[in-house]
Design a protein around this nucleic acid. Structure first.
Lengths: 185, 185
DNA sequence: CGTTTCATGTAAGTGGTTACATGATTTC
DNA sequence: GAAATCATGTAACCACTTACATGAAACG
């Protein structure tokens, strides 16, 4: 599903500016779809041109005019159709996993660092998820709640794996490195 | 990290044809980086032109000539550098999560189906991971082992979440739908 | 008799990233 | 005084996807 359709989706939750839509991508959507201004703004212009959203310009002092977007009934229909039609694929692109896969090519200390940093990142993501849930205080609808808790489950498992299996990986790599040093056939 | 660099990485494991590299993407790399022939073949041509890999053409009966690629010392250096330099990002794009997030817009039965199908997919992935580990019988090096078990941990958590929280999601959606039917303000 | 396996590629299209351009206000 | 927040956009570039093109052999 492209950013254009996804912007339409965000607007089903209520009116928003491009800037605010970006914040949804960084917040609620953070762990399943990223998007930058470079794709959001053209997408909104596109949707407006097609009549799937309306725009209201609001003048502001010392800032560019704010453009508030609202979804039209046709836009809602289109989004619902797209949502229904889209088959639920899941694509991951992880440079971290690539580094771990080819860990033997890098110094063990480098891998150890990468694991520590990644564990920290996972902890931050989990803290962020918790914070978002705490701030909403039970006002989270079932759909968003499911995705939030899915994120917690998955990142929790990822963190646990890095913490429990990481040391064994580093040890195994260090052992191999030592063998290669001590016994260079 | 682009497919070009990743092909170089696969070739650090030993010589291979484009076809065989694709199989690595579908096997060991399956849960962290996909790639199709449309990006693999041009990437290999590129690498050969730059002298990072060598090509040996092998004639075959009833088939196109097989091209066996091997990494050069310069290729190995380049890959190691790229591996070290690349910061370990993780990007996910999940249409499944999008469907769940906007679940309220779809019929509860549709969501129930999607959850069942997804649970089946996760089970298949987990079975595949187990099968790969069983077939290798302890011959898996630490790096690949870490990624394989990471996949098991994460997909295991995803499956558990879908199975334990899925029913509650469907119930909540059905309740809301019933309320809207029975009490249309 | 259909599908999967093996085996290579091209070319058009798309969708998104990154960098650039602008700039006041507020917070640390 | 620096960084973050609010606020919009453009344009070049890049990487990847998808569809097309070819075709024999083996498996079920």
């Amino acid at each position: 599903m492209d950013v254009r359709t996804l912007c339409l989706g965000v607007l089903t939750l209520g009116e928003a500016t491009g800037y605010e839509i970006k914040q949804v991508f960084e917040g609620a959507f953070a762990h399943f779809h990223a998007a930058g201004f470079g794709s959001i703004y053209p997408a909104l212009a596109d949707l407006a041109a097609e009549g799937l959203v309306t725009v209201t310009e609001v003048e502001q002092e010392g800032r560019p005019d704010k453009k508030i977007y609202r979804i039209t009934p046709e836009g809602l229909t289109r989004f619902t159709e797209a949502l229904c039609r889209t088959r639920p694929r899941e694509r991951v692109r992880s440079e971290f996993m690539i580094q771990m896969f080819f860990a033997a090519l890098l110094p063990p200390a480098r891998i150890e660092d990468a694991l520590k940093i990644k564990a920290g990142e996972y902890r931050e993501i989990l803290a962020d998820l918790d914070r978002r849930e705490a701030e909403a205080e039970g006002e989270i609808p079932p759909g968003p709640r499911f995705t939030l808790e899915f994120g917690r489950a998955v990142y929790g498992a990822a963190l646990a794996h890095v913490e429990t299996r990481g040391p064994a990986l580093v040890e195994a790599l260090a052992a191999t490195a030592a063998r290669n040093d001590g016994d260079p056939s």
